[in-house]
Design a protein around this nucleic acid. Structure first.
Ligand code: FES
Ligand code: FES
Lengths: 138, 138
DNA sequence: GTTATATGCTTTCGATGAAGACGCAATATG
DNA sequence: CATATTGCGTCTTCATCGAAAGCATATAAC
């Protein structure tokens, strides 16, 4: 399961993309509408800003808004940014690889299965963007 | 990423299945060969025993062995047992479902994507067993 | 029945994650 | 400049996780 931080990040981005009209949106508004602890959300949005996904404006009329276009922000990127590895094991992670002690990947059934899971997951998360989760047409 | 506990559980089961000849195997042996903290492993194996996957024998010549056949133990079952939900969001979990506040699943793009991820993951983990990760034929 | 061997159970400790409290810094408006 | 608004920074608290230690219990072997 995703950490609360990552879940909140996704929900906040979804909300931002839905209301996106160029105008900054208050942290407090997102927090209230999406049921996210305020100070926790501040932290999350700040990370997304430092990563270049969002930008912010201080003072009256300030708030958060997109720096990149929602259609350009892949879900996999957000996952890696906030959550860390997408793979279930360190030895099958593309971006956070760590070798297993006492286990040879080339002959390891476990890592093989987890590689399958990783690929299936990435196929989805690399091809969906923030825009995709914001607007749903049934 | 999986918790250390779950990673250890998988590795221990893999080792047990590989050496399975009916004879009990020492916790200490698994711990050493798979680089798992001893007392932590004791705990994990105990949980697997209580769940009916493994069984144990005390005293000299004791240790752990399979209660069910490795071909009958699906990886998804172990995941749910040790890790908890397989889904990335509580609102898309089959076995640990929890409703999202302020978010309607029927019109939520995020939960839709995560449902796709869950299904892709389950398709793999429900069809692979402990026996599959123990014996690898390249 | 005594002893060596193993598992079973409880407690403890530090590290990390989730969340809240308080104050500081920047900016729009007048 | 004065003030209200809003994002930023730091410190504290609480729960959970990873890991280790210590003692208790069961059993095979002699
Ligand atoms: S190599 Fe990582 S689990 Fe075997
Ligand atoms: S319903 Fe769970 S994220 Fe929208």
């Amino acid at each position: 399961m995703l950490s609360m931080k990552t879940q909140y990040a996704f929900k906040a981005l979804m909300y931002l993309a839905q209301k996106d009209n160029g105008e900054p949106i208050l942290i407090a508004e997102i927090a209230e509408k999406k049921n996210i602890p305020l100070k926790f959300l501040e932290n999350i949005l700040l990370e997304l800003k430092k990563a270049g996904v969002l930008d912010s404006k201080k003072g009256k009329g300030g708030g958060y808004f997109f720096n990149q276009r929602p259609t350009d922000v892949r879900l996999a990127k957000i996952m890696r940014l906030i959550e860390g590895p997408i793979a279930l094991l360190p030895c099958v992670s593309l971006n956070f690889y760590q070798k297993c002690k006492n286990c040879d990947e080339r002959h390891c059934g476990l890592s093989n299965v987890m590689k399958e899971v990783r690929d299936a997951t990435l196929l989805i998360l690399e091809n969906k963007t923030v825009a995709d989760i914001a607007f749903i047409n049934i």
